[in-house]
Design a protein around this nucleic acid. Structure first.
Lengths: 337, 337
DNA sequence: TCGGTGCCGGAAACCGTTTACCTGAAGACG
DNA sequence: CGTCTTCAGGTAAACGGTTTCCGGCACCGA
């Protein structure tokens, strides 16, 4: 059984290939009578367009690209990514776009992937996550003229389209929360400082500390549960033991809670814990974890909408998606007497 | 600047397009002298093949497909999927294949996606996860002649290529572990019974229970933390309270541990808990969770290798990837006196 | 009758791979 | 020596959906 092509439809409808294309794509250039006739034939033959042929004429590849520069292990541990991908997908499938996903070890490989995709016209646009300070990907994407939406703060995006959550305000709210409970010695278990959103929260944490006149220390980690646990252990053993710890993701907060229990202490009795990103994990622990909550699935969806907007000619702009909201749960309490 | 095509290379080399194609792809049909000349010109012009044109002649799309019929929320909670995708990717990027990932709400949509991909020649093959009992996807994939590797037991695969882990042996080992600790009343918190691997573990659990003469009950859930917690609550409140509970994933096990703590009980003092799939989560709780452990990233890689094998002409076969190994941790202990 | 104006539709280009076919030279054979 | 076969080393064209360019034709006003 030969494949059904528009050539066959054209033959049966008595028009040319070009006319069939116009008819099938609701383009002007054919009369309504012809369009109806062509559509009827196409339906009878159960015609399905060949993607490759469609892409050929410099049309769209109907694919967006997402490169994740993390190890497979980190990806599986961080609930963020899969939720984000799910949100991206929810928008893509409506428009029957596909997602080309690539997992690479580092930024250099990520950039190589963009070069390749651009040269091959493989994707119509890319979504860029884990924005860095002075991110080298930004000039590259500009040079390649690859439409891109950056996931991160406008301060890092250098004028390119970005979607961001207000980490500064959120961090201020988190600090205010523990201050209002009476805490004066607090700590922050942060991710790697080269990550843009970590840097922004670092700044906000320091500013809030000064503002409230607190003893506010920071420990940087690689975001993993192991390092989150180690940082917690170190903080609790330190001379100026904090009575409240704010974590940069939920994995580290869960690990921190486990350390607290293991040391024979309790939360919130001995230490108040605040997580970030609020996945289901935070409701599965005992006590449940206070967390800075935002809807990651919807975040992915919003970013994808903005990428479609960019293709439709929208000008580069910074879009505030939302400010995370603090959800107070069992791990919040006053400092020990 | 116009795009560089093989036509231009052909013009400059003084040969035809076809000859250029042979030269660039190391195919016979051109002399070594011509090949060298063409390669030199191609390099000078920095030629990059156009993917769309390459796909046109019924060649490969250099893309594998993976459809996940789960909600975005479930996906972000289950560490399994992202780890699996990471493993798939690690193999794909070596061969510069891409992964087309689609997230859909249910099996019907998953099947519609396969139909579409097959009609559009969108993917060279697919990886099928979450195999069901009497899975309707199997006859569909056969009909569409879409190369596929099924992730699941040969008993469910109906002769198609599959990669599996031995859930029967693993479940037997898990039961034997708690029996050796002295437990006689045990329970299993399982996923939905229509999932093939759940069914297989159900059978194995029942068989092991009979074999050891145990009181062995099963509660089915939807794999979510919430239902895992509810099932645990119900089991602990029941007349014949089990002294050991074996869970079908780690999320439910973590939720179960939280319920135990919340009720003022302890693990392993009052109840021994065993998780399945052993992600980092199991090492972050307190006590740490005994778990049935397997390397999910490597599992994804193995499946992908088998799909490449299928394209290279390997015959359909069942491949045992591994049998999960029990890792005994803090949540294992003798039953209360 | 003539020129201008839309509208409808045809022809061809796009581009890397593959299939079918062509050409000339070398070798085989009566 | 003439004819046939063989083979390396190529060429030409098809693949197929979109788009650009162009041409024919009806219609309008002068």
């Amino acid at each position: 059984m030969p494949r059904i092509t528009i050539k066959e439809i054209a033959r049966r409808s008595g028009v040319s290939k070009g006319a069939v294309s116009y008819a099938l794509n609701n383009q002007p250039g054919v009369s309504e009578a012809t369009r109806a006739r062509v559509l009827k034939v196409a339906e009878e033959l159960e015609w399905v367009p060949n993607r490759a042929a469609r892409q050929l004429s410099a049309a769209r590849s109907e694919t967006f690209g997402l490169v994740l520069a993390r190890t497979a292990k980190t990806l599986s541990e961080e609930p963020f990514y899969m939720g984000f991908v799910g949100g991206v997908e929810s928008v893509l499938s409506d428009k029957s776009y596909a997602l080309a996903l690539q997992v690479v070890p580092d930024l250099a490989d990520e950039m190589a992937t963009y070069r390749k995709w651009a040269a091959e016209r493989r994707v119509d646009g890319v979504i860029v996550v884990d924005l860095r300070v002075d991110d080298p990907r930004i000039p590259l994407l500009r040079k390649l003229e690859l439409p891109a939406v950056l996931v991160g703060d406008p301060a890092l995006a250098d004028g390119m389209t970005c979607v961001w959550t207000d980490g500064t305000t959120a961090m201020y709210a988190a600090v205010q929360h523990v201050v209002s409970l009476g805490h004066r010695v607090i700590a922050r278990v942060a991710g790697p400082p080269e990550h843009g959103h970590v840097w922004i929260r670092d700044e906000a944490f320091a500013a809030a500390g000064r503002r409230f006149g607190l003893d506010a220390q920071v420990v940087h980690t690689d975001f993993s549960g192991e390092e989150g646990a180690a940082a917690t252990r170190k903080l609790i053993a330190s001379e100026s033991r904090p009575t409240a710890i704010i974590y940069d993701n939920d994995l580290m907060a869960v690990a921190g809670l486990s350390v607290v229990n293991e040391l024979g202490l309790t939360s919130p009795g001995d230490v108040t814990l605040v997580a970030w990103d609020d996945s289901t994990l935070c409701r599965l622990t005992h006590p449940t974890l206070t967390a800075m909550s935002h809807n990651i699935v919807a975040y992915g969806a919003e970013v994808t909408h903005r990428l479609f907007g960019l293709l439709d000619g929208a000008l580069p702009a910074a879009h505030l998606y939302s400010t995370p909201a603090l959800v107070v749960r069992g791990s919040s309490g006053p400092p020990p007497a």
